[in-house]
Design a protein around this nucleic acid. Structure first.
Lengths: 167, 167
DNA sequence: TATTGTTATACTCTATAACTATA
DNA sequence: TATAGTTATAGAGTATAACAATA
């Protein structure tokens, strides 16, 4: 069995590169969204999620699950965004406990206003130095990691851990 | 010239996979460090930076530059960590304006206490589904992105932007 | 009883600007 | 004048627990 106490240089390099690139990218993306539309990245994600289905409002819980928020955290963001006129809340007709959220025309406007700069930034910061083969390899490798993360949360490494949702 | 308004599916896949994996990884890492040593990821980075050179205290500004902090942000973290006994501050003998920071024995202890679980988590969450070739490809690709990010901040995408350091 | 969502609350973190002191 | 670091302050975000309403 492999020594489990250390990562060899190649493993460390992959880990550090990922952490540093994502940190820089996150930072850059956050600034762009803030400047071009006054949005945080999470607000952008929420808006983008709602913008995909302009006709179909989505449940709070579904949005929260998708974006790994605590419920109260999502309530906070949605409250801010509703104040800003980017989305609206309405009680569900199916289940009166549920709140359905949908992007307003203004929300879609802001999304459209922010999007070109966002795409441009991603292109310049992340994609510019990559070949098509690099991008494919990156999606493939990280896609596998993502599938693994979703399927198999690291219980044995953090046995005391419980997510906000399983109590 | 390529259409600059959209990312094709392959580009989007690479971008989204990176953002989601790093977000999940960041979350998992943060929890592990918090549980095993009461450290945030940034505090871990600071401590790890100081732990590399136990004999050579490092300047506040150098640490801040390396970890992309605002200076006041670093002062805040260092203050917290000094209260917790993880590091100490001392005026520099070379330059009386500077503050030199170094990890205390307790800081090194906490680092050692946190490290095995950290390595184990990274192995399980990030590295488990990857082959050696994947890791090499990942380091190579992201290493190039990192070099590109450091060398060439996205000015044209965010022309109004100034970093906290260039005023 | 379980689930949906909100609220109250407390905490962590970040950034800007003003400030002190040294170079 | 420029640089190093701190402080005051204000704001954004997060999480936990208690809660009301509905299933």
């Amino acid at each position: 069995m492999a020594d489990t106490s250390f990562l060899d240089p190649g493993q460390l390099a992959a880990y550090f590169a990922l952490m540093e690139v994502s940190s820089l990218l996150q930072h850059a993306v956050d600034q762009q969204l803030r400047e071009d539309g006054g949005l945080s990245y999470i607000q952008f994600q929420i808006l983008a999620t709602l913008g995909e289905t302009p006709d179909e409002p989505q449940r709070m819980t579904d949005v929260a699950d998708r974006l790994v928020h605590s419920r109260s955290g999502l309530t906070y963001q949605v409250t801010q965004m509703a104040k800003a006129g980017l989305l609206t809340r309405a009680p569900s007709s199916d289940d009166e406990r549920s709140t359905m959220v949908s992007a307003t025309p203004k929300g879609q406007e802001v999304l459209a206003q922010v999007f070109p700069g966002h795409v441009e930034l991603v292109r310049q910061v992340l994609l510019a130095p990559l070949t098509r083969a690099d991008m494919d390899a990156l999606s493939d490798i990280l896609g596998r990691v993502r599938a693994h993360m979703r399927a198999d949360p690291p219980r044995s490494a953090a046995p005391r851990r419980r997510s906000a949702h399983d109590r």
